[in-house]
């Protein structure tokens, strides 16, 4: 697919999906009502209020989280040269959750302030994952060892999370949805503070895109082509972790977006270039927006959590990606 037409098509899809998202819900709003609510907002019209206060905020939260998780995943996959890594499979999400829970328990933090413990947790989890992967590694380039390390780390941090919650369960009652990844009606509030992280992160990822592409040719070749591998790898990690954390703080540990979106983008648009990165961000947004719609409508009036829907679909996709990666290595 040509980059221009691919991006145009996907943008149209995003707009169409956004419109659908605003329409769908307990009471279906017609496209006319949605446009009216956006353009001639009447605060006394209940449907207008629902469209803007509930659905539009959820739409923005879903789109934001999907986009930043996708870009984070793409950065990780490229600099670690591993098709299986993502914020969730490296344990970043779980580490963030543990530190958020600790931040709430020990310091009574809330809202956007939880970004800092979450960031610390994400960095810590990556370090643990690398350490664990180093211990289980068989051969220099074994893509599964990092995933195994990530899985071990995630398990470790999940039990730590459970432990902290069990000390004082009452305090974490309203956190249950967030723990599996959910988009609530008030999630836009931390986003008001955190969106610059995403904007800046994606902007810098685009600026760093070319040297990151070089790194996929191997450290030495990248260096002689003119990229400083340590700077590029460090920079990409320093972008990928806060990007993922900014989403985790808003919606919780939604998995698999960061794993799947880069694969879709690379498959449809090609391996390299800034347009692939933008396409990846939009794909991530589409995935989470669609998952949110599914969560709200599949078992209506019962609501599902986005994290549950993503885990169900994403788990299958993860298996498919592992199988193709292994088959390719065997060939």
């Amino acid at each position: 697919m040509k980059a221009g037409s691919g991006l145009a098509l996907l943008s149209v899809a995003v707009v169409a999906l956004a419109l659908l998202h605003l329409m769908a819900g307990a009471r279906l709003a017609s496209p006319g009502v949605v446009l009216d609510a956006l353009l001639n907002h009447d605060p006394r019209n209940y449907q207008h209020v629902v469209v803007v206060k509930q659905r539009l905020t959820r739409l923005l939260v879903a789109g934001y989280s999907g986009a930043v998780l996708a870009v984070s995943g793409m950065l990780l996959q490229k600099v670690l040269r591993n098709d299986l890594v993502s914020p969730s499979t490296l344990g970043i999400n779980s580490g963030a959750v543990t530190f958020v829970v600790l931040g709430i328990y020990a310091f009574g933090l809330d809202g956007a302030a939880l970004f800092w413990p979450a960031l610390l947790g994400g960095v810590f989890a990556v370090a643990v994952t690398f350490l664990a992967a180093g211990l289980v590694r068989q051969g220099a380039r074994d893509p599964l060892s990092l995933i195994l390390g990530g899985a071990m780390t995630a398990t470790l941090f999940s039990s730590a999370t459970t432990f902290v919650i069990s000390i004082d369960p009452d305090r974490f009652g309203k956190l249950l949805g967030w723990l599996v990844g959910d988009i609530g009606n008030f999630d836009y509030q931390p986003l008001i503070y955190l969106w610059p992280v995403g904007l800046l992160g994606i902007g810098m990822a685009l600026a760093l895109c070319r040297p990151i592409d070089l790194l996929t040719l191997g450290t030495e070749q990248a260096a002689t082509l003119g990229a400083d591998p340590r700077f590029v790898r460090g920079g990409a990690l320093a972008l990928a972790i806060p990007l993922a954390i900014s989403a985790v703080c808003v919606v919780g540990p939604i998995g698999f977006v960061g794993l799947i979106a880069p694969h879709v983008a690379r498959l449809l648009l090609g391996e390299t270039g800034r347009s692939t990165m933008v396409f990846c961000a939009l794909t991530g947004a589409v995935i989470v927006i669609a998952a949110d719609m599914a969560a709200r409508t599949l078992l209506a009036p019962q609501l599902l959590q986005v994290g549950t829907v993503m885990a169900l679909c994403g788990g299958v996709a993860f298996l498919a990606i592992i199988l193709t990666t292994l088959r390719r290595r065997a060939a």
Partner: peptide
């Protein structure tokens, strides 16, 4: 410039790129 020994390159990369 240097032609390194490892011939690592992503499978999906197009030759012109």
């Amino acid at each position: 410039s240097m032609l390194a020994q490892s011939n690592e390159a992503p499978e999906g990369m197009v030759v012109r790129d």
